[in-house]
Simulated scan of single mutants.
Amino acid sequence: MKLDDAYANVPYIPGGTEYPARWSAQAEAFRDALVAEGRAELGLSYGPTVRQAFDLFHPEGAAKGLCVFVHGGYWIKFDRSLWSHLAAGACERGWAVAMPSYDLCPDVRIAEITTQIAQAVSAAAARVDGPIALVGHSAGGHLVARMAMPGILPADVAARLQHVMPISPVSDLRPLLETAMNADFRLDMAAAEAESPALMPAPSVPVTIWVGGDERPVFLDQARWLAEAWDVAHHVAEHRHHFDIIEALGDPESAMLDQLLG
């Protein structure tokens, strides 16, 4: 369809097809290490289906707060098992990190995934005291942006939000109507508008939009649209593309984590 190529990342990233296997290996090694140290709780249920579960990684000592990472994959692929290593940076800074999976389209609609992530954040928040920072990548960037909206999270959980960081988010879902992926999303214009953070009022919680300078033009647009709609900080990381932009989460000294966690 008209916008299929515009929203395709893999063909435009050197070695793009190799990233999932690399992520999986790094994530498994990280999980194994934290399990051995007694600092990982895996497969914690937050809902009735198998995919409604999260992993929780603990820092050494008492946690300063909770960081929740929501993965991407256009709401149609991947799960929490590929991203565990990205918890390393926040854990080293003394934060607990929750990583949820969620049901995927076409089994559910995007609006249902939004509800599931709200349930996952709430379940993780019940296990970790202190402030909450939300970060999500691509489709996960859309989902954490939705968490910033009034009425999505329970009031007591929303009150704990310290920062929300959509990384390379899909903020306006209307263009996806012109992609073949919409056969799985099953969006019409009303549903797309109802799930588009860029069409919603700015939240009261601090938000920073992060995107790679070498990303596809539509992702630069999507990040800018949200930053402009909400009048929030907008960081373009030079020489980073859609797949390596998230690597900074694994580095406790990164500017990304400085902004997210303070």
Rank of each mutant, 00 (worst) to 15 (best):
M200D: 11
A120T: 10
A36G: 02
V236E: 03
T208M: 08
C67T: 14
R51G: 07
G212Q: 04
L187G: 08
D221I: 09
A202Y: 03
I13T: 06
I167T: 06
L161F: 01
V164R: 00
H142E: 01
D231E: 09
H58M: 12
R186S: 15
W210H: 10
F57N: 09
H163W: 06
Q162V: 02
R174H: 00
A120W: 01
P203I: 09
R186H: 14
H241S: 01
A40I: 03
Y74Q: 02
I76Y: 10
L187Y: 01
R127I: 10
H85G: 08
P201H: 01
A139V: 08
A111R: 12
D172Q: 08
P100T: 13
V207G: 03
H235W: 13
V236H: 01
L82N: 05
R22P: 13
Q162A: 03
D156Y: 06
M1P: 13
V108T: 02
E215I: 00
A25D: 14
H71C: 06
W225A: 14
M200I: 10
I132M: 01
A194Q: 02
G15P: 03
D107R: 14
D258A: 14
D156S: 15
I76D: 15
A148P: 01
R216Q: 12
I152K: 07
P14T: 14
H241A: 11
P131S: 10
R31L: 14
M147T: 12
A227C: 00
S45M: 13
Q119I: 09
A139G: 08
A63C: 06
A202M: 07
A194F: 08
D172A: 10
M99W: 07
S168H: 04
V50L: 15
P175Q: 04
A183T: 14
D4H: 04
K64Q: 11
Q116N: 04
A255H: 11
L104E: 11
S168R: 02
A191D: 11
S204P: 12
A148F: 04
T49G: 04
P48H: 00
S196C: 11
F57K: 07
H241V: 02
A124E: 01
V97Y: 05
I113S: 05
L86Q: 05
D79L: 03
W230T: 08
D188A: 05
A227L: 08
H142R: 00
M256E: 10
A148N: 02
Y12T: 11
R22K: 15
V205M: 09
L176E: 06
C91Y: 13
V205G: 12
T179Q: 05
D188Y: 07
Y74L: 09
C67D: 15
A183G: 11
H234L: 04
P166V: 01
Q116E: 06
L3V: 07
M181S: 15
P169W: 05
K2R: 12
G15D: 10
A8Y: 05
R31P: 14
S101D: 00
P175Y: 00
L261P: 00
P20S: 05
I246Q: 06
T208E: 06
V170R: 15
E238Y: 11
Q259M: 12
I132Y: 09
L177T: 02
S45V: 13
P197D: 13
A111Y: 10
M256T: 14
